[in-house]
Amino acid sequence: MTTEHASSLRPAAVLAAQRGWWRLLPLVALALLPLVAPPFWRSLTLEVLALAIFAMSLDVLIGYTGLVSFGHAAFLGFGAYAAAFTTERVSENLLVVLPICLASVALYAVVVGFLALRTSGISFLMLTLAFSQMLFGLAIRWSRVTGGSDGLSVARPHIGLGAWQVPLGPDLDLYYLVLAAFAASWWLLSRLVASPFGHTLRGIKENAQRMQALGYRTRRFELAAFVVAAVFAGLAGMLLAMHNRYVSPDTFAWTTSGQGIIMVIVGGAGTLVGPILGALLVHLLESVGSSATESWRLIMGVVFVLFVLFAPKGIIGILRRLRRSKESPRA
C-alpha cells in the first residue's frame, strides 16, 4: 500500500519531468535572440534577465518564506559596488570578481539579516528598508570612496585561467554571460524551492509558530533564506553594473526595492516564473514606456494597485484561474 500511495502522490512530479525538455525552449530562444534582434532589444533582454534574477531572489523571501523585504535593492547595489571596487582595485578577472562580490554580499546579508530578523512582519519590512537607505545615504555622502552621486565606473571583466584568457568585450559576450547566470539561477532556485529546505521555508510562511513547536529553529532558516536571496540579488547587481559599465547610488534607492516588489506581486509571488514575467513587464514599461509617455510611473503605480486590489496572486494567478475555469466544465 505504501508504494502504491507514494506513486499516487507523485504524478505532478512525473509530469514535470516529462515536460522538462520544453522548459528549455525559452532558453534556446533567448540564446538565438542576439542573432536576429537589433542591439537595443538585445540590451533590453539582458537587463530583463538580470532583473529577473533579482526578482526571483526577492520572491524566495516574499513568496516562499513570507518575509516581505522592502530593502532588497541593498544587495543589488552592494553587488554592483562590489563589482566596481573589485575590478578597480583587485582584478578584472571574472573568476576573481565573482566570488569576491558574492562572498561580500553574503557577509553583509548575514549582518543585516541577523538584525532585521529579530523582528517580523511590518517591522521587518521597515528595517530592511532602513538598512538599504543607510547604504543609499552612504553611497551619496561618502564620495571619496563611492564617487558620491556621480557613482563609479565598472570595467568589463575578462575570464582568465592562468595563460588562458577570454575577454568579455562587446555586448554579445556579456549577453551570454548574463543568460548563463540567469539559467543557472533559475535552475538552482527551482531546485532549492523544491528541496526539503524550500518546503521548510513554505512551512515557515504558513505558520512559523507551529514550525517551532515541531522543532524548527525558524530564525536560522529565515536567515539562510535571507542570505541566499541576497547573494542572487548581488549577482544580478554585479551583472547589471558590468553591463552599464557604471554604478550609481540610485541602485540602492527604495524605489528599486519597490520595483522588485512590483515585479514579484504583479508576476505572481510564490512561483519562479511569476517574477520573471514581472521583471519583463516592469522593465518593458520602464524602458519602452518611458520613451512613449512621461507618466509611465503613474501607469506602473496604477497597474500595481489594481493587481493588489483585484489579482493579488499576479499574472500567474490569473493564468491558473483561467486554466481551471477552462478545465472545470469538462470535468
Binding site: 502522490l9 507523485r10 512530479a13 531546485r191 532549492l192 523544491a194 528541496s195 526539503p196 529546505f197 524550500g198 518546503h199 521548510t200 512551512g203 514550525m211 515541531l214 522543532g215 524548527y216 532558516f221 539562510a224
Partner: peptide, 20 residues
C-alpha cells in the same frame, strides 16, 4: 505531516534533492 517527519529525520535543511 511531512514537515514534522522531515524535521524528525534531520532532513529539513537539505537543499538539492526534491523533497518528494
Amino acid at each position: 505531516v511531512c514537515l514534522a517527519a522531515r524535521r524528525q529525520q534531520g532532513l529539513s535543511s537539505r537543499v538539492f534533492r526534491p523533497a518528494h
